[in-house]
Write a protein that binds this DNA or RNA. Structure first.
Lengths: 206, 206, 206, 206
DNA sequence: AATGAATGAGGTTTCATTCAT
DNA sequence: GATGAATGAAACCTCATTCAT
């Protein structure tokens, strides 16, 4: 009479999760049949339901585990209290490193999540919230300490940061995940910091 | 003996397309039942198949019509030959205006496209290519004419621009498309141009 | 307010009938779409229903017209009163000639009829009855006049005659209707008359 | 992870097959709905697809199993090496006995096979080929040993034999399969051997 | 008489989920 | 805990037939 929750740390639980990532990476969420996930994991169809409530629960679990890794950055950066420029660099690097290490998982996260029920999207948004909050904190701190230029909208900046990271990962996935994603860190970091324009008003200030 | 191709400009064709956008916005591609699309359009199930080859054809048509509008910006900007800064501003504005006018369609484009078959994603990528090319051209021209700062990777910059626009639209959709998307143009434009950092190296150059 | 019955002799009626034979020959009864029959006949879908009650009616009409030709042999032979051996030869020859002239129609009659509803099969049987009767009459007359050997079961003989003709046509169709069907007449006639065995009991009788 | 192939000898496989024969006998191939076959077999619709690839596979399996029984005659006769006259008698008897035992199956084989896709007809032809070959061998051997009269075309004779058997079965089915089919063996055998005519050329030989 | 756009019932097939073993 | 055969709801799509023009 053990509940699903109590089985989360078994080897089989993780085998199914890994298998789900693999299958979903190839076929997407809707294309991923439970039977194939089970076979890939080397268990019977029914066994899947001993560890997960239903198919949606598998997807959410996959996302939770993945996002957890990314969100861990928040916690880590939180504890380290690095100065904002460094924090931004670490953030980008960590994000790229995490997904770069596991292309299948990146594919699921970037591409296949954004489908399925609004329910799932809502949950993903919830899970991402700490991450967004952390970006916001870095930005605010940077503005306060003078590490970043003063007058800009934090939300717009956060969307630029997140959107750029996202699109960089997408491009990497789309071209087949062939190059080293983390190696893009410096280029992206520089781009976000400096934008594409001259800083005429800056020279005026001097 | 009229083929599907010959029926593309009828009122019913557009009614079904509109209805498909509406239903897909709510339920996603897989969740959108042909029967519901038909009912919403006020036609019989079978009628849908007089205008579209199959369900996938509906989605692709939705995307084609939408992306066409956005890509039209390419053509327009091409003809106008505006200077790069202006071109970038027009691009952002046009993108926001087009999607801002039709939130449902934006939802389909932003969220639901990225699922389904790789075939569809490939087609979307094909349709977006002229758009990406145009951004590249603007960037290159801007660097040549000195409108943009010199040393940056064009691809990275393009991903930042596209990613930021994308994420801005996502945020707008996710909050329920309640505010005016086009009104964000200046803020985003400024952000992309200037980044978030001081331009210390610029002062060094003086 | 003219009924379907009154339109049977128009050019369009026959155009549709010809077209139906062609399409059914290729696709079978179930595979033959009314729309394709209409297109092949150069009329609109709806027009078909001005000349035929429904799809089944088309098939039955096709069969009626064809079988009519074969059954006409009955009438003709009836009128001629040829002696039995000659009558049998004429019968085989006429059957082969009629179908040999129109392979499409033969295909429909031999292969595709035997499907669809029992209702249709019943009707075909009804239409074939005069033909069977005629064979029976030839056989009985032949036995009475001494043209055929005495002791054999007329029904069995009739089935042999009909079955052999049928199978000969089938073989001809199956190999692509490439050779001259009517040219088989003498061989089949001889076979039916003499069987495959020696006639030992005959020599005993002498 | 059991494939369809591995389930062919289960009770359920045969239950579905029997049920398919029954339903097809009544309604024909196209009229036989998978749902009705499933209900008749006492299983759920989906279960059918655990044992058969699709509806066409059911039909082909029905045919394979049946024709296999008839073709088994070939093998048996092959092994026995009976003299030709005996072989022919056994052949007719075996054919009638096999179909006579299972009228539904006979109906499917005789009537409903000949429809549907050319693909299926081709397959049936393939399955029947050994049977036809065997008839040919009997005929050739009979001619060589002098059991049959010398000059006749083997193919024509084979068609007469097969066509007569076929038509006899058809007649039996059409009248409701009320009498004993196998009891017709001697009559048909005699008919095929002797034909319907006197053997004038034979008496001339004497 | 002729058209052909529209209809909608109906059938095959898939696949997440269950439950007896 | 584990299995996997069985379930059956649900969805796409076809196509004979109708009817307003």
């Amino acid at each position: 009479m053990s509940s699903i929750a109590q089985r989360k740390d078994t080897a089989k639980y993780h085998a199914i999760l890994e298998s789900a990532i693999k299958v979903m990476a190839v076929s997407g969420y809707h294309g991923a049949q439970v039977a194939r996930i089970a076979r890939e994991a080397g268990v019977a169809d029914g066994t899947v339901y001993l560890y997960f409530k239903n198919k949606e629960d598998i997807l959410i679990s996959v996302l939770r585990e993945t996002i957890a890794q990314i969100v861990m950055l928040s916690t880590w950066l939180e504890g380290e209290h690095p100065e904002p420029l460094m924090a931004l660099h670490k953030l980008i690097e960590g994000h790229f490193a995490t997904l770069g290490r596991n292309p299948d998982l990146a594919l699921v996260l970037q591409v296949h999540v954004r489908q399925s029920d609004p329910v799932i999207r809502e949950q993903v948004a919830d899970m991402m919230r700490p991450y967004h909050r952390m970006i916001d904190r870095i930005l605010v701190l940077g503005q306060e300490t003078g590490a970043f230029r003063q007058p800009f909208d934090v939300r717009i900046a956060r969307r630029m940061i997140f959107g750029t990271i996202d699109e960089t990962v997408n491009a990497w996935i789309f071209t087949g995940a062939k190059y080293n994603l983390a190696a893009q860190t410096d280029l992206v970091y520089d781009m976000l910091l400096n934008g594409i324009g001259w800083r005429v008003e800056l020279s005026a200030e001097m």
